[in-house]
Amino acid sequence: MGVKDSGESSSSGDNDGRCQKSQSLNFGGFDEFEEGEGETCCDIDDDDFVALNSYSVQCDRTDDVWKIELEEDEFRHPLVREINRLIQLRLSWNSKLESDMRHLLRSLRPRQVCAVLLSQDDERVVLQFFYWADRQWRYRHNPIVYYAMLEILSKTKWCQGARRVLRLMARRGIQCRPEAFSYLMVSYSRAGNLKNALKVLTLLQKAGVELNLALCNTAIHVLVMANRLEKALKFFERMQIIGIIPNVVTYNCLIKGYCNLNQVENALQLIADMSSKNCSPDKVSYYTIMSFFCKEKQVNEVRDLMEKIVKESNLLPDMVTYNTLIHKLSKHGHADEALDFLREAEARGFQIDKVGHSAIIHS
């Protein structure tokens, strides 16, 4: 789950001082967004990156992402389970059930409210509960609840819902960090609205929120997922001009973009260039290229890459490596090659699970 815990203050009390923003945020830029879920707006140009020019060079920007990790105990808490039960009865709600829900809501701690949101299978139900709770007397959402809500919506195409949550944060005086805008950007991207996804950068600027590496990585990711690698590379250059140094996540996004366009040589060259940038490739960097080779049935290239990993990066093949190879080869119908890697893995003492065996059988 993605929101850094802002403390265990009661969700009905005042927010943590670190979570408040003293200045008034300017969110007039919301009106510039085009309405409609699922609209496809793919005509982008360099003007969509103009917001980058407003940020000063060599600013100190850390990759500081709000995160909250919920324990299983929080999902199993009696209050959380009872609210989930009442939500399931929403079609037959009456004044007594709503009163019971309201009473329970005021007893929930912020992390437990997040657990309720994450327990729902339908994002529409999540939004309904979120807004219902926001309207209740003597209750106020803790900041982490807003970020949990935005993260949930970022996994859907409900970009307008994410936009409304961000506006509500502004009205409630909740600090809008770059991660909040990042979630909105991803939601627009999932809805196929790349134009509005990139307009989030301008919205960030108007709100007076400082750009950071995490949001830059999100922008590159959405461009890559839209098969706009050329634009992603331009953004990659511009972010460095204003002093934002890429990390391994940035490079992995671009490696994925090259592989998506069958430009594996460029992907390999990017990995080679990373060392000179004081950024070592990780297993994801190599797994992305391995997946490309598996799709193309280039087993010799896979083995050469495995040797390179050991020699240059000191990353030893493990069970995850072999599981990745077996599943990718099986997915693309290369059962014999997958079986060879399964036998090799077991010879090295790794236990491939039943899912791996089944993948080979059904490939």
Rank of each mutant, 00 (worst) to 15 (best):
E151A: 08
G257L: 05
H362Y: 11
N278L: 11
G38H: 13
N193D: 15
S119C: 03
F181V: 08
L305P: 10
T62Q: 14
S285T: 01
F33K: 01
M225N: 12
E210Y: 06
Y55I: 08
I271Q: 01
Y322P: 00
Q88A: 15
E69S: 12
V50L: 10
P317H: 09
N84V: 03
E74H: 10
M306S: 12
Y188G: 01
V50I: 11
S9I: 02
L268I: 10
T218N: 13
R81V: 01
G161C: 14
A272S: 09
A345T: 06
M149W: 06
L223A: 03
A226E: 05
N262M: 00
L203A: 02
Y287M: 12
D64Q: 13
S285Y: 07
L91S: 12
E265S: 05
Y146C: 09
E346A: 06
I174V: 13
R90S: 07
M239H: 04
R348E: 14
E123M: 09
G17T: 03
S92P: 00
V248Q: 01
E210I: 09
L213F: 10
L270C: 06
V200E: 01
E74N: 10
K195I: 03
F350H: 14
M185D: 01
A232F: 02
P178N: 10
R167S: 13
L215P: 00
F341I: 02
L261E: 02
E210A: 12
F75Y: 09
E237K: 01
V57S: 09
I309H: 07
V65P: 04
C42N: 12
V249E: 11
I245C: 12
L91K: 13
L91Y: 13
E307Q: 12
S358T: 14
A345E: 06
K21T: 06
I68K: 13
N252R: 05
Q112I: 00
L254K: 01
R85Y: 14
D14F: 05
S6G: 08
S363Y: 04
E71G: 13
I271P: 03
L198P: 02
L305H: 14
E344T: 09
S12C: 10
S119R: 06
L97F: 07
S11I: 04
S11M: 04
R61M: 06
L201T: 03
Q269M: 00
L268G: 01
L329F: 09
E74Y: 04
K195T: 06
V224A: 07
N252A: 05
A133Q: 04
Q20R: 07
S12R: 03
V222Q: 05
A170F: 10
N142M: 04
E210F: 04
M319A: 15
D121E: 15
I241Q: 11
D47G: 15
K295W: 04
M290T: 08
L118V: 07
A162I: 08
I244Q: 00
Q20F: 05
V222D: 03
R102T: 15
N314H: 11
C159M: 10
S54K: 05
Y139F: 15
E98C: 14
H357R: 14
S313Q: 12
R177G: 10
G243V: 09
F33C: 07
C114M: 06
Q20Y: 03
K295T: 08
Q128E: 15
K234W: 04
K67L: 04
L325P: 03
V355S: 11
N278A: 12
D122P: 12
K308R: 15
D282F: 07
